[in-house]
């Protein structure tokens, strides 16, 4: 041992990033399996390097629920600039709190720099893209995410366009809360429809889920895919 060791560790070439199909994916909760089935992949999952826009009635719940399974499997989740993140609900949705970190960039407008740094170390990122981010800045962040192999989940409550292009758009529509009456009961579960569309999906996929279910965890309503076109024709 010592200064004259024959091989220095820095001279050892690190093994390059592998690209086995299973390693290009992060696991996703079975509830959402039908939305994230990729042709050629053995299991459904979030494809590394992708940007997923979560919109509609429950964007934050959805983003956290999508990140949950991967977080339990060992990935770290960074939540960047989401004010008032409810830790308890995050845990109930299935995220492992031991691997949860909140990042606040402050008023200085360092969002893009911080996001690039976060992308280096975290496999899961949830953020609300702040106003005034230019398309060029958003592209820089997107490229970094793609290069580092993380998954970015953005949340937006409005329908206004995002400066960042997305690989997948997931919307939560027609929420229905159960359990609350006129002066009695309490909020027990919310039934809603999750629609996924994107460049690589031939048509919109849609499922109905409890988000959150009675325990706080997302649960499938019946698990079958409802094809929107068919539903519209039947209506």
């Amino acid at each position: 041992m010592g200064a004259s060791s024959p091989v220095r560790l820095s001279q050892v070439t690190p093994v390059s990033a592998t690209s086995l199909a299973i390693e290009r994916m992060l696991p996703v909760d079975d509830t959402f399996a039908t939305l994230f089935h990729t042709p050629g992949a053995e299991r459904p999952g979030l494809v590394r390097g992708q940007v997923i826009h979560c919109t509609g009635a429950a964007p934050l719940s959805l983003a956290l629920a999508l990140a949950a399974a991967a977080s339990r499997a060992g990935a770290w989740l960074a939540v960047v600039d989401v004010p008032g993140l409810g830790v308890e609900a995050t845990g109930e949705l299935g995220v492992l709190l031991e691997r949860l970190v909140r990042v606040e960039t402050g008023p200085a407008g360092q969002w893009a720099d911080v996001m690039c740094a976060v992308a280096d170390g975290f496999e899961l990122i949830v953020t609300e893209i702040p106003r005034g981010v230019s398309a060029a800045t958003a592209r820089r962040v997107h490229q970094r995410i793609r290069a580092r192999g993380g998954v970015l989940l953005t949340t937006a409550s409005g329908r206004s366009g995002s400066p960042m292009s997305s690989d997948l758009d997931v919307r939560t529509v027609s929420p229905q809360w159960k359990g609350l009456g006129a002066g009695h009961g309490y909020l027990r579960a919310r039934r809603l429809v999750v629609e996924a569309s994107g460049r690589r999906l031939p048509r919109t996929r849609s499922i109905e889920v409890w988000l959150p279910g009675p325990t706080g965890r997302p649960e499938p309503v019946d698990g079958e895919v409802i094809d929107l076109t068919v539903a519209a024709a039947g209506a």
């Binding site: 970190v101 990042v103 606040e104 960039t105 200085a108 720099d113 911080v114």
Partner: peptide
């Protein structure tokens, strides 16, 4: 990364529950 972020935005900006 957390150490690096703390250098970038200050210790208070990177938090754990």
């Amino acid at each position: 990364t957390m150490t690096r972020l703390a250098g970038l935005i200050g210790d208070g900006g990177v938090q754990v529950p």
